[in-house]
Amino acid sequence: MSAPNKSYDPVEVQALKPEEIDRVRDEALAAIAAAGDLAALREVKTAHAGDRSPLALANREIGALPPHAKADAGKRVGRARGEVGQALKRRQEELEAERDARVLVEEAVDVTLPYDRTPGGARHPLTTLSERIEDIFTAMSWEVAEGPEVEAEWFNFDALNIAPDHPARSEQDTFFVRGPQRDGAPGRGDDDETGVVLRTHTSPVQIRSMLDRELPVYVICPGRVYRTDELDATHTPVFMQVEGLAVDEGLTMADLKGTLDHMVSSLFGEGVRTRLRPDHFPFTEPSAEMDMVCFVCRGASVGNPDRPCRTCGSEGWIELGGCGMVNPKVLVACGIDPERYSGFAFGFGIERMLMFRHNVEDMRDMVEGDVRFTRPFGMEI
């Protein structure tokens, strides 16, 4: 048996020759320096520092060397691999810094630009005013009632003591969905004998409330109504209305006046006086028109040419709407004993109240959908 070959020279292994290791190292360093981005650097790392790279394969050859030759060969290969590893780390840091600097430039956000280039929306003032009125009455324990906008003629006219020959029931004033049938007595609600209309007021909701609810009844009825009016500065064929109804034992005109005074002061400010003027409506008896003192001039423009008021026309008063005690015939139509119960009702146009409250001069501004009109009212909740 022969002794170990202690004279074996490791430089005779091609992969471990000093010049070969230097060549492989220099190729790796040149490839690292030429890598233009992180993706290219990852490919260079795999080719020159991966498990199948020339330096890794040379490192495997060290295991076949005799013990006394392994140390010198390991130092040469380890030194070369260390230089390649350090070069990879430095180049990666450089490329990452270049990438971050580029991202800061390409994806920069200019915080000095206007933040409101997309204008904010706004709720329509008719909606917010309607909800404010609802809040006033729900705070007094009233309920909010709603009803259909396509309504039976019986609910819209007959139950409200509006006679068949009343001008309001003509096609010149009312939108009919199905024509009225006059060959017999008017029917009740869904009966085929009654016509169908787009409701001309929210009073049908009052009728439905008296039919469906237990007494006493205290309801506020906001909603959209329809009339055959031309669209101009003071009229529109579709508008918002709010009506109130109270039916209980012992109600009087004093209760009506106190309720409306509270509503007016809540909407227009404390100290705004009101008055009732006699009038006539088929569904209330007695009936009245309600006026409030002009909230702009507070009556100071009356007889004073030096202080004219455009809001009230220097009359000192502004007409709000109609009101009165519920006609006993309406109570009877809803099955309520007028000898025991009485009630009061009122109705106001929300557009008209908005015009007074915010000095809106043209009603068409409310329906044309121009955000320049709605935006100044803001996002009131």
Rank of each mutant, 00 (worst) to 15 (best):
P282A: 06
R275I: 10
T118N: 07
Y8L: 14
E361M: 09
A47C: 04
V225S: 00
G78H: 04
L29T: 08
V144G: 07
A34L: 04
G82F: 10
M210A: 01
A246T: 05
C221Y: 00
V13S: 00
S203K: 01
G147K: 12
M1F: 13
D183Q: 12
A58C: 09
V11W: 08
M210P: 03
I21K: 00
D110P: 11
D22E: 12
A31F: 03
R357I: 09
E83W: 11
F344R: 12
I133E: 04
P114K: 04
E193L: 07
D173T: 01
V247M: 05
E96T: 08
E96F: 00
E98A: 15
G82C: 08
C294E: 01
S265L: 06
A47Y: 02
A71G: 14
D255G: 09
F155P: 07
E134D: 15
I32F: 03
V332M: 15
I350Y: 08
V296N: 05
Y8D: 11
S265H: 09
R357P: 02
V196K: 01
A345T: 06
H235V: 01
L245N: 10
V150Y: 00
L65N: 06
I350T: 13
V11Y: 07
K257L: 09
D370G: 11
A163Y: 08
V217Y: 04
V326A: 06
T274P: 12
G63I: 03
P338T: 05
V264A: 07
E19K: 11
R188I: 14
Q181E: 11
P180W: 03
C309G: 04
